[in-house]
Design a protein around this nucleic acid. Sequence first.
DNA 1: CAGATAGTAAAGCTCTTGCCTAACTATTCG
DNA 2: CGAATAGTTAGGCAAGAGCTTTACTATCTG
Lengths: 123, 123
Amino acid sequence: MILRYMLNQSPDLDRLFHALADPARRAMVERLTLGPAPVSELARPLPMSLPSAMQHLGVLEAAGLVRSEKIGRVRTCSIDPHALSQAEQWINARRAEWEHRLDRLGDYLKTLESEGDGDDSGR
Amino acid sequence: MILRYMLNQSPDLDRLFHALADPARRAMVERLTLGPAPVSELARPLPMSLPSAMQHLGVLEAAGLVRSEKIGRVRTCSIDPHALSQAEQWINARRAEWEHRLDRLGDYLKTLESEGDGDDSGR
DNA sequence: CAGATAGTAAAGCTCTTGCCTAACTATTCG
DNA sequence: CGAATAGTTAGGCAAGAGCTTTACTATCTG
Protein backbone atom coordinates (compact mmCIF):
# COMPACT_ATOMS: atom_id res chain seq x y z
CA MET A 1 0.00 0.00 0.00
CA ILE A 2 3.04 2.23 0.22
CA LEU A 3 3.58 4.62 -2.68
CA ARG A 4 7.32 4.93 -3.08
CA TYR A 5 9.14 6.43 -6.02
CA MET A 6 5.91 7.54 -7.57
CA LEU A 7 3.79 10.65 -7.78
CA ASN A 8 0.10 10.41 -7.13
CA GLN A 9 -1.05 12.31 -10.20
CA SER A 10 -4.38 14.05 -9.67
CA PRO A 11 -5.00 16.97 -11.95
CA ASP A 12 -8.40 17.20 -10.29
CA LEU A 13 -6.92 17.98 -6.91
CA ASP A 14 -4.43 20.35 -8.51
CA ARG A 15 -7.21 22.39 -10.06
CA LEU A 16 -9.37 22.12 -6.99
CA PHE A 17 -6.85 23.37 -4.45
CA HIS A 18 -5.53 25.93 -6.88
CA ALA A 19 -9.05 27.27 -7.34
CA LEU A 20 -9.45 27.60 -3.59
CA ALA A 21 -6.11 29.35 -3.17
CA ASP A 22 -7.43 32.74 -4.23
CA PRO A 23 -9.48 34.98 -1.91
CA ALA A 24 -11.67 36.28 -4.74
CA ARG A 25 -12.56 32.76 -5.77
CA ARG A 26 -13.21 31.67 -2.20
CA ALA A 27 -15.46 34.69 -1.81
CA MET A 28 -17.40 33.56 -4.87
CA VAL A 29 -17.76 30.08 -3.47
CA GLU A 30 -18.85 31.48 -0.12
CA ARG A 31 -21.48 33.59 -1.83
CA LEU A 32 -22.70 30.65 -3.87
CA THR A 33 -23.14 28.39 -0.86
CA LEU A 34 -25.90 30.81 0.07
CA GLY A 35 -27.62 30.14 -3.24
CA PRO A 36 -27.27 30.66 -7.00
CA ALA A 37 -26.29 34.06 -8.36
CA PRO A 38 -25.66 35.75 -11.68
CA VAL A 39 -22.13 36.65 -12.73
CA SER A 40 -22.47 40.35 -11.99
CA GLU A 41 -23.61 39.69 -8.45
CA LEU A 42 -20.58 37.52 -7.85
CA ALA A 43 -18.33 40.18 -9.31
CA ARG A 44 -19.82 43.22 -7.58
CA PRO A 45 -18.09 42.87 -4.18
CA LEU A 46 -14.73 42.07 -5.74
CA PRO A 47 -12.10 44.81 -6.16
CA MET A 48 -11.57 44.10 -9.85
CA SER A 49 -13.07 44.49 -13.29
CA LEU A 50 -15.82 42.23 -14.59
CA PRO A 51 -13.59 40.42 -17.08
CA SER A 52 -11.16 39.55 -14.29
CA ALA A 53 -13.99 38.18 -12.21
CA MET A 54 -15.06 36.15 -15.23
CA GLN A 55 -11.63 34.58 -15.37
CA HIS A 56 -11.89 33.55 -11.74
CA LEU A 57 -15.26 32.06 -12.51
CA GLY A 58 -13.67 30.12 -15.33
CA VAL A 59 -11.12 28.68 -12.90
CA LEU A 60 -13.89 27.65 -10.52
CA GLU A 61 -15.81 25.97 -13.31
CA ALA A 62 -12.71 24.18 -14.59
CA ALA A 63 -12.18 22.88 -11.07
CA GLY A 64 -15.74 21.59 -11.02
CA LEU A 65 -16.66 23.76 -8.06
CA VAL A 66 -19.21 25.83 -9.95
CA ARG A 67 -21.75 25.13 -12.65
CA SER A 68 -23.50 27.81 -14.65
CA GLU A 69 -26.29 28.17 -17.12
CA LYS A 70 -27.12 31.08 -19.33
CA ILE A 71 -30.74 32.04 -19.73
CA GLY A 72 -31.46 35.05 -21.84
CA ARG A 73 -28.56 37.40 -21.19
CA VAL A 74 -28.08 36.26 -17.59
CA ARG A 75 -25.72 33.49 -16.61
CA THR A 76 -26.72 31.97 -13.30
CA CYS A 77 -24.01 30.22 -11.30
CA SER A 78 -24.33 27.66 -8.53
CA ILE A 79 -21.91 25.49 -6.59
CA ASP A 80 -21.36 21.84 -7.18
CA PRO A 81 -20.81 20.44 -3.69
CA HIS A 82 -19.33 17.23 -5.04
CA ALA A 83 -16.01 18.86 -5.99
CA LEU A 84 -15.56 20.34 -2.54
CA SER A 85 -15.97 16.93 -1.00
CA GLN A 86 -13.11 15.62 -3.10
CA ALA A 87 -10.80 18.10 -1.43
CA GLU A 88 -12.27 17.21 1.90
CA GLN A 89 -11.63 13.53 1.29
CA TRP A 90 -7.99 14.09 0.57
CA ILE A 91 -7.58 16.05 3.77
CA ASN A 92 -9.46 13.44 5.76
CA ALA A 93 -7.29 10.68 4.35
CA ARG A 94 -4.20 12.57 5.52
CA ARG A 95 -5.60 12.96 8.97
CA ALA A 96 -6.58 9.31 9.11
CA GLU A 97 -3.04 8.28 8.21
CA TRP A 98 -1.65 10.72 10.71
CA GLU A 99 -3.82 9.39 13.51
CA HIS A 100 -3.05 5.82 12.54
CA ARG A 101 0.61 6.67 12.81
CA LEU A 102 0.13 8.11 16.26
CA ASP A 103 -1.58 4.89 17.27
CA ARG A 104 1.29 2.81 15.98
CA LEU A 105 3.72 5.12 17.73
CA GLY A 106 1.77 4.63 20.95
CA ASP A 107 1.92 0.89 20.52
CA TYR A 108 5.62 1.07 19.86
CA LEU A 109 6.22 3.15 22.96
CA LYS A 110 4.21 0.68 24.99
CA THR A 111 6.32 -2.17 23.59
CA LEU A 112 9.48 -0.35 24.62
CA GLU A 113 8.06 0.14 28.06
CA SER A 114 7.26 -3.53 28.62
CA GLU A 115 10.46 -4.82 27.01
CA GLY A 116 12.59 -2.31 28.80
CA ASP A 117 14.85 -1.80 25.75
CA GLY A 118 14.94 0.63 22.77
CA ASP A 119 16.58 0.16 19.35
CA ASP A 120 16.51 3.06 16.91
CA SER A 121 15.05 1.15 13.96
CA GLY A 122 15.50 3.83 11.31
CA ARG A 123 13.88 2.81 7.95
CA MET B 1 -23.81 38.18 9.16
CA ILE B 2 -23.82 38.71 5.40
CA LEU B 3 -20.50 39.69 3.91
CA ARG B 4 -21.34 42.02 1.06
CA TYR B 5 -18.93 44.37 -0.67
CA MET B 6 -16.02 42.89 1.22
CA LEU B 7 -13.35 40.28 0.76
CA ASN B 8 -12.64 37.82 3.51
CA GLN B 9 -8.89 38.29 3.58
CA SER B 10 -7.05 35.18 4.77
CA PRO B 11 -3.46 34.95 3.62
CA ASP B 12 -3.30 31.76 5.70
CA LEU B 13 -5.85 30.00 3.55
CA ASP B 14 -4.23 31.39 0.42
CA ARG B 15 -0.90 29.86 1.35
CA LEU B 16 -2.49 26.69 2.60
CA PHE B 17 -4.54 25.87 -0.47
CA HIS B 18 -1.77 27.05 -2.75
CA ALA B 19 0.63 24.68 -1.00
CA LEU B 20 -1.77 21.80 -1.53
CA ALA B 21 -2.30 22.61 -5.19
CA ASP B 22 0.92 20.96 -6.33
CA PRO B 23 1.28 17.18 -6.70
CA ALA B 24 4.90 17.19 -5.53
CA ARG B 25 3.95 19.03 -2.37
CA ARG B 26 0.97 16.78 -1.73
CA ALA B 27 3.27 13.79 -2.19
CA MET B 28 5.55 15.23 0.46
CA VAL B 29 2.65 15.74 2.83
CA GLU B 30 1.43 12.21 2.14
CA ARG B 31 4.86 10.84 2.91
CA LEU B 32 5.11 12.87 6.10
CA THR B 33 1.78 11.69 7.45
CA LEU B 34 3.52 8.31 7.69
CA GLY B 35 6.19 9.85 9.91
CA PRO B 36 9.10 12.32 9.90
CA ALA B 37 11.69 12.21 7.13
CA PRO B 38 14.86 14.02 6.07
CA VAL B 39 14.82 16.34 3.07
CA SER B 40 16.54 13.90 0.75
CA GLU B 41 14.02 11.18 1.44
CA LEU B 42 11.19 13.55 0.60
CA ALA B 43 12.96 14.59 -2.58
CA ARG B 44 14.02 11.16 -3.82
CA PRO B 45 10.70 10.02 -5.39
CA LEU B 46 10.12 13.40 -7.04
CA PRO B 47 11.00 13.93 -10.71
CA MET B 48 13.08 17.04 -10.07
CA SER B 49 16.36 18.30 -8.69
CA LEU B 50 17.04 18.61 -4.98
CA PRO B 51 16.96 22.43 -4.97
CA SER B 52 13.52 22.35 -6.56
CA ALA B 53 12.29 19.96 -3.93
CA MET B 54 13.72 22.31 -1.32
CA GLN B 55 11.66 25.13 -2.73
CA HIS B 56 8.52 23.05 -2.41
CA LEU B 57 9.46 22.30 1.14
CA GLY B 58 9.78 26.01 1.74
CA VAL B 59 6.25 26.53 0.47
CA LEU B 60 4.95 23.82 2.77
CA GLU B 61 6.72 25.37 5.75
CA ALA B 62 5.46 28.84 4.89
CA ALA B 63 1.95 27.40 4.81
CA GLY B 64 2.48 25.93 8.25
CA LEU B 65 1.95 22.40 6.99
CA VAL B 66 5.45 21.23 7.76
CA ARG B 67 7.96 21.87 10.50
CA SER B 68 11.61 20.94 10.29
CA GLU B 69 14.66 20.83 12.47
CA LYS B 70 18.25 20.48 11.46
CA ILE B 71 20.46 18.21 13.52
CA GLY B 72 24.00 17.80 12.35
CA ARG B 73 23.80 17.92 8.59
CA VAL B 74 20.35 16.34 8.43
CA ARG B 75 17.13 18.33 8.41
CA THR B 76 14.24 16.25 9.64
CA CYS B 77 10.75 17.28 8.52
CA SER B 78 7.39 16.46 10.02
CA ILE B 79 3.85 17.58 9.39
CA ASP B 80 1.92 20.00 11.53
CA PRO B 81 -1.62 18.63 11.48
CA HIS B 82 -3.04 21.91 12.77
CA ALA B 83 -2.64 23.70 9.44
CA LEU B 84 -4.48 20.98 7.56
CA SER B 85 -7.41 21.30 9.90
CA GLN B 86 -7.69 24.99 9.01
CA ALA B 87 -8.33 24.04 5.41
CA GLU B 88 -10.73 21.37 6.55
CA GLN B 89 -12.65 23.89 8.64
CA TRP B 90 -13.13 26.22 5.72
CA ILE B 91 -14.49 23.40 3.61
CA ASN B 92 -16.75 22.20 6.40
CA ALA B 93 -18.11 25.69 6.90
CA ARG B 94 -19.03 25.83 3.21
CA ARG B 95 -20.79 22.51 3.41
CA ALA B 96 -22.64 23.60 6.52
CA GLU B 97 -23.89 26.72 4.77
CA TRP B 98 -24.81 24.70 1.74
CA GLU B 99 -26.82 22.21 3.76
CA HIS B 100 -28.44 24.98 5.72
CA ARG B 101 -29.49 26.53 2.45
CA LEU B 102 -31.02 23.27 1.27
CA ASP B 103 -32.97 23.10 4.52
CA ARG B 104 -34.30 26.61 4.02
CA LEU B 105 -35.12 25.76 0.43
CA GLY B 106 -37.01 22.71 1.64
CA ASP B 107 -38.94 24.85 4.10
CA TYR B 108 -39.73 27.34 1.36
CA LEU B 109 -40.99 24.63 -0.94
CA LYS B 110 -43.16 23.26 1.84
CA THR B 111 -44.57 26.73 2.41
CA LEU B 112 -45.43 27.01 -1.27
CA GLU B 113 -47.08 23.63 -1.12
CA SER B 114 -49.30 24.46 1.82
CA GLU B 115 -50.14 27.94 0.54
CA GLY B 116 -50.89 26.57 -2.90
CA ASP B 117 -49.23 29.51 -4.68
CA GLY B 118 -45.80 30.16 -6.17
CA ASP B 119 -44.22 33.60 -6.73
CA ASP B 120 -40.81 33.80 -8.34
CA SER B 121 -39.28 36.12 -5.71
CA GLY B 122 -35.95 36.80 -7.37
CA ARG B 123 -34.36 39.52 -5.18
C1' DC C 1 43.08 15.60 6.63
C1' DA C 2 40.48 14.13 2.33
C1' DG C 3 36.47 12.75 0.39
C1' DA C 4 31.69 11.68 0.53
C1' DT C 5 27.21 13.24 2.09
C1' DA C 6 23.24 16.54 3.12
C1' DG C 7 21.66 20.62 2.48
C1' DT C 8 21.77 25.88 0.79
C1' DA C 9 22.38 29.84 -2.00
C1' DA C 10 22.37 32.36 -6.30
C1' DA C 11 21.16 33.44 -10.85
C1' DG C 12 18.51 32.82 -14.75
C1' DC C 13 14.91 31.16 -17.81
C1' DT C 14 10.15 29.99 -19.19
C1' DC C 15 5.40 29.49 -18.48
C1' DT C 16 1.37 30.72 -15.89
C1' DT C 17 -1.55 33.99 -13.18
C1' DG C 18 -3.98 37.84 -12.47
C1' DC C 19 -5.03 42.04 -13.77
C1' DC C 20 -6.30 45.70 -17.08
C1' DT C 21 -8.62 48.26 -21.17
C1' DA C 22 -11.11 48.31 -25.34
C1' DA C 23 -14.16 46.42 -28.36
C1' DC C 24 -17.83 43.40 -29.38
C1' DT C 25 -22.31 40.34 -29.00
C1' DA C 26 -26.64 39.31 -27.41
C1' DT C 27 -30.78 40.42 -24.87
C1' DT C 28 -34.31 43.33 -22.92
C1' DC C 29 -36.70 47.75 -22.17
C1' DG C 30 -38.89 52.22 -23.53
C1' DC D 1 -35.86 50.84 -33.53
C1' DG D 2 -32.39 52.75 -30.13
C1' DA D 3 -30.42 52.63 -25.63
C1' DA D 4 -29.29 50.25 -21.57
C1' DT D 5 -27.91 45.87 -19.54
C1' DA D 6 -25.22 41.37 -19.02
C1' DG D 7 -21.77 39.03 -20.49
C1' DT D 8 -17.82 37.77 -23.61
C1' DT D 9 -13.52 38.08 -26.39
C1' DA D 10 -8.94 39.74 -27.42
C1' DG D 11 -4.61 41.55 -26.50
C1' DG D 12 -1.18 43.03 -23.52
C1' DC D 13 1.55 43.63 -19.40
C1' DA D 14 3.78 42.75 -14.70
C1' DA D 15 4.57 39.58 -11.19
C1' DG D 16 5.03 35.00 -9.46
C1' DA D 17 5.79 29.96 -9.77
C1' DG D 18 8.57 26.21 -10.85
C1' DC D 19 12.42 24.45 -12.70
C1' DT D 20 17.40 24.25 -13.87
C1' DT D 21 22.61 24.45 -13.25
C1' DT D 22 26.48 25.90 -10.73
C1' DA D 23 28.78 26.80 -6.77
C1' DC D 24 29.21 26.74 -1.95
C1' DT D 25 28.93 25.33 3.26
C1' DA D 26 28.65 22.39 6.68
C1' DT D 27 29.12 17.68 8.72
C1' DC D 28 30.35 13.07 9.03
C1' DT D 29 33.63 8.93 7.86
C1' DG D 30 37.81 6.45 6.76
